[in-house]
């Protein structure tokens, strides 16, 4: 069976080493936080200026001055720290962040990422911190469905959408398989309800067995 978004999030969470400093992108990657092991000392960074971000705020915890990058009210944890935007992005751009998890429209076989703009003439482009994370985090993990709703692969030989970053993606977690992007090529680490042969057939990207 293919994975649902919660199972994908759990898979990503299992691969994050204890003690990592991690940025989770807006949308599905946020779900990873629900699956991080307690007591592993994993510190969440939110680019609007906080380390050791706590869970979403509920009820009277809600404070308009304390939100995450998706503008959702969140909470503090013991050891939280605040800082301004230039410092927050220096953390990324300076290579201090261990892992970031982002969604994507497309990832290419060599790790190019496209996740900020569809390129449609009517679309309003919005990049946020995606380009900074793509070049700055030590490991860039993408979490996405493997195919669009129309059945087109999102792991592609070359991205057709406008790029976010070049050769920056290390792993792609999808509902059908987990891919490691390496210098040797794209390695299929796990499959979910699909065989390696079926994947090779449906993707226009050369695949390697683990």
């Amino acid at each position: 069976m293919s994975l649902d978004k919660h199972e994908m999030a759990a898979l990503v969470a299992r691969d994050i080493a204890p003690g990592s400093y991690v940025n989770l992108g807006i949308g599905q990657p946020t779900l990873v936080a629900d699956h991080l092991p307690a007591g592993a000392g994993i510190v969440l960074h939110t680019e609007n200026g906080m380390l050791n971000m706590g869970p979403a705020a509920v009820g009277d915890q809600i404070d308009p001055d304390l939100t995450n990058a998706g503008k959702i009210p969140v909470t503090e944890l013991p050891g939280s720290a605040y800082f301004h935007h230039a410092d927050s992005f220096a953390m990324m751009r300076g290579g201090h962040l261990d892992v970031c998890v982002m969604g994507a429209f497309q990832v290419s076989a060599n790790g190019d990422l496209a996740n900020w703009h569809t390129g449609d003439p009517d679309a309003i482009p919005a990049v946020g911190g995606a380009m900074d994370l793509a070049v700055g985090a030590k490991s860039v993990y993408v979490m996405m469905t493997l195919f669009t709703k129309r059945g087109e692969p999102k792991l592609v030989p070359e991205c057709t959408y406008p790029l976010t970053g070049l050769k920056c993606v290390d792993r792609v977690y999808t509902d059908q398989a987990t891919f490691l992007i390496t210098d040797a090529g794209v390695i299929v680490r796990d499959t979910f309800g699909i065989t390696f042969e079926e994947l090779s057939d449906r993707l226009d990207v050369p695949l390697l067995r683990p």
Binding site: S88, F89, A90, R93
Partner: peptide, 8 residues
């Protein structure tokens, strides 16, 4: 402008 470039 990418957010980090905006700040920097």
């Amino acid at each position: 402008v990418p957010q980090g470039n905006l700040a920097e």
